[in-house]
Amino acid sequence: MIELKHDELSFSFPEVHPDAKLSLNLQRTLRIPDDGNDYPLPPGLGAFPLRHVDDFASRLPELWKKHGGVMLPMYQSEALWVNLNGRYPFAVKVATGKINALTGESWADGLHRDPQDYMVTPDQPWLDGYCVEKGTIRQFVAMPLGGGYTVEEQITGEAEHGGLQIVVYPMKAQAYRELYVREGETVFSVALDMDSMALSAPAQSAPDMGLAPGGRMKQEIFDDPHDFDVWDTRASARCFVHITNSLAWRAVTGEEPPTTPLTSREYQEAGLPWFDYYGGDREALEGAKKLADLKTVKETGEEKGEQPLPENEPVEDPVVITLGGEGEGRPVREGRF
């Protein structure tokens, strides 16, 4: 089952194992420059608010009601990352506009090993974008659906689904007992909470948003180290996360959306750190050519004669802190700056 608790999706499978729990939130973050350079991991700036679609059904499109799930607000060209927390191993599949973020393939039920279309927790603590090359992702950046920027529109030619789709499969209880409980694998614990920051909001357009490929970031998506049959494919839970622009969010929910995050340059000028993740000897997946061949937000904008990224200057010599190795999570600075 999936519950919504404090802006986190809480997946639990008590019928599989009492420990089979995974929580997932979507973190606000800096949009890294879309300039061809490889950037380190930006920080988490706190979780996006999540609300049940059913709570606002009368004010939402029919298709959203049909999809069910939850919704969140984003500004145009704002970035997000998927933050995964939990000790129990899960196979987690993430798609945007029903296009798999690791393979570029259309949504398909179940798990696939070749090419691997899922991540494995707790080894994989987060996902910041589309897996375009081994060790490199392109950041998830929100753009209005219908503008031709999103991965969905570039691959299918249609602006139909938008949003983010997530499905998780727990490890079978017997495999968990054998692999983790007895051997005592390292666990990750990521504590994330941060106040929002006040900045001016960019222009708004259509209420329905999708995700598009932004700047390049160093991030490995790890190969599944387990036998494929450890995953309990009979037990799964999935959620459609709709993305609405922030103006529509206010109109639909009556709540103020979060303020826009700092730009990369402002963050850099404040002398704040970026992050790198040490994944030990874990193997990384090759990227998907289908995703690597897509145009970035900047490239699509140039073709259309638009400037969708108002702040896109390179960040030079970022201060980088290496995480990982000792179960260390991706920290979030506390307080305001």
Binding site: M1, H52, D54, F240
Partner: peptide, 10 residues
């Protein structure tokens, strides 16, 4: 009474 996130058709 615990409320689950509803999954629909997609």
């Amino acid at each position: 009474l615990v409320r689950e996130v509803r999954d629909g058709e997609w």
